[in-house]
């Protein structure tokens, strides 16, 4: 196994960069991070819509969330592969296709995290803010959002872990990320499949475990700060 790692380590980490595209673990992390980062603003809008007073808006967003959480990511990727070139009128790179699918997919999960964050603060905070004369949006901006965003951090890190795992499927449309790299190695080596795939699993294992652990640490720290104010 050590020889495999030595021989293909770079490929697994960064794909064919610098001679070609970025691939491997680097591509996985970039895709996951960009996907979440771009989905987050959408999720904030969706989160606010979910707690708004307008029934229609709440219903539409609830429907959006149900649909995106009810179909497999593979389906979304096939949709993106088909629809995106139609909409933009030109051929789009595999990376962009995957990014669009992931942004849509994650927006639904992130919307739930945002909603839980906004509704998770004690009612008294909004009341105290409104009682002192701040408008609804001023209260959101100065009192609710700053606290809610901090409280959301552990959930966001966990969602990042979920996204990293979710990106492992995009190799089937040719996106060069970590699992793609492992498939390439397997087709070169032909034997040692078990070792190759165990290395693949091992890389995901280490990355995801470390991030989950970090999320737990963050959660504990945030809880400690909150507990100071009974």
């Amino acid at each position: 196994m050590i020889e495999l790692i030595q021989k293909y380590g770079v490929m697994l980490l960064v794909g064919s960069w610098p001679h070609g595209q970025i691939g491997g673990l680097a591509a996985t992390l970039i895709l996951a991070f960009l996907g979440l980062a771009l989905a987050f603003p959408i999720a904030i809008l969706l989160g606010f819509a979910r707690i708004s007073h307008f029934k229609v808006l709440r219903g539409v967003v609830a429907g959006w969330v149900v649909i995106l959480r009810g179909i497999p990511l593979i389906m979304l990727i096939f949709w993106a592969y088909f629809v995106v070139p139609l909409i933009t009128g030109m051929s789009v790179s595999v990376f962009v296709t995957c990014l669009v699918a992931i942004i849509l997919y994650e927006s639904a999960f992130l919307a739930e995290i945002v909603r839980a964050g906004l509704q998770g603060l004690p009612r008294g905070q909004m009341e105290a803010a409104r009682a002192s004369g701040l408008s609804y949006w001023q209260s959101m901006r100065y009192v609710i959002l700053p606290q809610a965003l901090v409280n959301m951090i552990p959930s966001l890190v966990n969602q990042f872990v979920s996204t990293i795992k979710a990106t492992s499927i995009v190799y089937i449309i040719g996106m060069e990320e970590l699992t793609f790299a492992a498939q390439q190695i397997n087709s070169i080596e032909l034997t040692n499949a078990l070792q190759t795939y165990l290395i693949l699993a091992g890389i995901y294992f280490i990355v995801c475990l470390a991030l989950s652990y970090a999320a737990r640490l963050l959660e504990a720290r945030i809880q400690k700060r909150r507990a100071g104010l009974a």
Partner: peptide, 22 residues
């Protein structure tokens, strides 16, 4: 922890391509 941190599709690949070897 293995099954929660490794993507499901990778787990499938390990079983299908890897396990028959041993």
């Amino acid at each position: 922890e293995y099954h929660r941190n490794v993507p499901t599709v990778v787990q499938i690949l390990v079983w299908f391509f890897g396990v028959p070897e041993i």
